[in-house]
Design a protein around this nucleic acid. Structure first.
Ligand code: ZN
Ligand code: ZN
Ligand code: ZN
Ligand code: ZN
Lengths: 388, 388
DNA sequence: GAAGAAGGTCACTAGGTCAA
DNA sequence: TTGACCTAGTGACCTTCTTC
């Protein structure tokens, strides 16, 4: 078949106009102009867009493909074939929409036993999302050390579950703030530990706050796994999210700390993936973070806990899906989020030993140099308990 | 902008045509619009369609053709005569729409209190799924060489789009069947090429058959990319699927062929992943395969093709999601499918060079040994054209 | 910056469904 | 068989780019 890619240069701009009386090359009615590469009428233009560009259904012609003239409009098969014959071409598309999906979303619940699908969040889901998003904004904007630029939280949380969020803010403010000004070498170790502790503590607050997780019911081991991996994964999401708010990730703070290069490499690849490929909204980010934080696929041994976490994942995924639908985004976006989470899990799985080596090493140096007058680092100590 | 600041309610869409209070020209009841060429009520519209376009039944009037007003509805004879009198006309018919394939996914009665919503596939989606599944069963069960055990296709395809599927079967049967009995060393090369060609040709048939893909509109380069990667990916899904039907994958057929070990390793890891972790049913498998086959994320350079493929992906994902919902499966299952596809893409991306090296090498040996009296291997040659 | 073309909207209607 | 109600394709008319 000839490619037909040699489309004639289209008439554009204030140039030769269409003569009155010129006919549609498809249906022989009055033409209105050049549409998608051929002289056609308005209906045929719309038809072509709908059928080819919006991916509508085709069907066989009843009359063996013999439709012509005005009657060609009644036969999708023949009309489309004629469109292509006269040179209408998908190369002229600028944007595609998916109407079939949009239409289904508009279905309203019927009064029958079996409800048809209605795509809005129910109050529980709304609340869930509000709390997550509120937390996320605070977590994202909070300085992880006083070198970091802070973002203004005011206003941003307005629509969210305010009280809960204020509660977060209070809890987070009690956590020791890492100090990046190194007076002596030992300060650097303090700093690293404090940063990790901060994130681990935030994770604790986050997980306790996720609606319906019933944190205290989970087994100690499960909690430890969640916090350990969450502490590796969530800060990357935070960093990507801050990057989207205009604060680029600071690679320098990891270099020369003794953390292996491939880990740093992997981290920043993920952050870039997040901010460039995904560039999610703030609610999407909050939900992605919640999915990462509650993932059961990291060696949770208790079957009960696994089930609890799976249910939460399901709840979050459902909220995310409906929200995306409301925003007219494609399911593919959800798929890309899931793929990202997969990568994130691979990262934390592969680098957990390295991180642990890194932290232990720092600790050993620390202990050797000083009789550790133990600073309470709730988050980190909690994680550390699980290690031999 | 300040157009006429007067109360112009910015009308969109067409003008309202019918005034409330207009009467049906046939029965004098409230009219609903122009139907088949006359202003009529809904019942008269339905009546006309049924009688003229569907049944053609007639029946003499008891009252000598004197029925009028509302009572005309009781007399087929008079009602039809009046319809024709006021100008209703069979020319207004369009094609019959696609008859929806018998709903095979029936609503499952809810016994629990949790189930609030249930979605069903629309006719287009039903048809799409039926064709895919029908193709898949044939593709899966077909022997790729005469050593392979075949599965009985009879019965399995009964509920699917039968004609389309028969068409597949015919197309597939014209492809050269690889012969695994090696008389001379050269036969082995023939065999390898034929196997690859078989799969590439199957991919071609598959892609042409996917509803709404409009294969011929895609650019040559796009087609080539799809077939190339599909030929690497789809056979793995097939193998996993056969494994679920009780036919274990045959690793031996790759060993000693010169294909590098890591590729074989990767392939069988994916097959195992598919059959053990995913264990999808046959609908799901067909949809997963279609997703893999139509993925735009493999260096499709044409923006239009990318959009078209994305659109199809969206359609398939939506069907998969609804189908999973009907089967009471969690969204997480969808996520795991997506994650699998991601792995599959990584595999094909990483090993495409190796496969190409492998095929070219075989070809070189082949050419060196014999003046290649070229056997037509449509599928493979198509792929090969894109390579330098 | 105006003409022309792409894309969006939505009332309208062909055709299907199903309980009565 | 009927007709209330639904689904989804249509096309008149509109807005939003893009090009000259
Ligand atoms: Zn036309
Ligand atoms: Zn036709
Ligand atoms: Zn009437
Ligand atoms: Zn009568």
């Amino acid at each position: 078949m000839s490619t037909g890619a040699t489309s004639t240069p289209r008439k554009r701009g204030p140039e030769k106009k269409i003569q009155p009386g010129e006919l549609c090359q498809v249906c022989n009615e009055q033409a209105t102009g050049f549409n998608y590469g051929a002289l056609t009428c308005n209906p045929c233009k719309s038809f072509f867009r709908r059928t080819v560009l919006e991916n509508n259904l085709t069907q066989k012609c009843d009359r063996g493909g013999a439709c012509y003239g005005k009657f060609i409009r009644r036969c999708i098969d023949c009309r489309l074939a004629k469109c292509e014959l006269v040179g209408m071409n998908a190369d002229y598309i600028r944007d595609l929409r998916i109407r079939s999906i949009r239409r289904r979303i508009q279905k309203i619940p019927t009064n029958g036993q079996l409800m048809k699908f209605s795509e809005t969040l129910d109050p529980f889901q709304e609340n869930f999302l509000a709390i997550l998003e509120g937390f996320w904004i605070i977590y994202r904007n909070k300085q992880a050390n006083i070198h970091e630029p802070s973002l203004d939280t005011t206003g941003a949380v307005q629509r969210t579950a305010y009280e809960v969020v204020v509660n977060f803010e209070n809890k987070l403010s009690t956590i020791k703030q890492p100090n990046p000004f190194f007076q002596i070498a030992l300060d650097r170790l303090h700093f690293v530990k404090d940063v990790i502790n901060l994130h681990a503590s935030m994770m604790l607050v986050f997980l306790e706050a996720i609606p319906s997780i019933r944190w205290h019911q989970l087994q100690e081991e499960t909690k430890r796994e969640l916090i350990t991996f969450g502490t590796m994964e969530i800060p990357l999401i935070r960093s990507g999210s801050r990057s989207l708010s205009g604060i680029p990730p600071n690679r320098g703070q990891f270099e020369g700390t003794g953390l292996r290069d491939w880990v740093i490499e992997h981290m920043f690849a993920i952050i870039e993936d997040f901010s460039i490929k995904l560039h999610p909204d703030s609610y999407e980010t909050a939900l992605i973070a919640a999915l990462a934080a509650t993932s059961p696929d990291r060696g949770i041994t208790s079957a009960v806990d696994y089930k609890i976490l799976s249910n939460i994942q399901e709840t979050i995924l459902e909220i995310l899906r409906i929200k995306l639908g409301i925003d007219r985004k494609q399911l593919k976006v959800l798929a890309s989020f899931v793929a990202f989470l997969q990568k994130l899990r691979e990262y934390s799985h592969n680098s957990s030993e390295e991180w642990w080596r890194f932290i232990s090493h720092k600790k050993k140096i620390f202990m050797a140099q000083q009789q550790e007058k133990e600073v309470v680092r709730t988050g980190m100590d909690f994680v550390a308990q699980g290690r031999t």
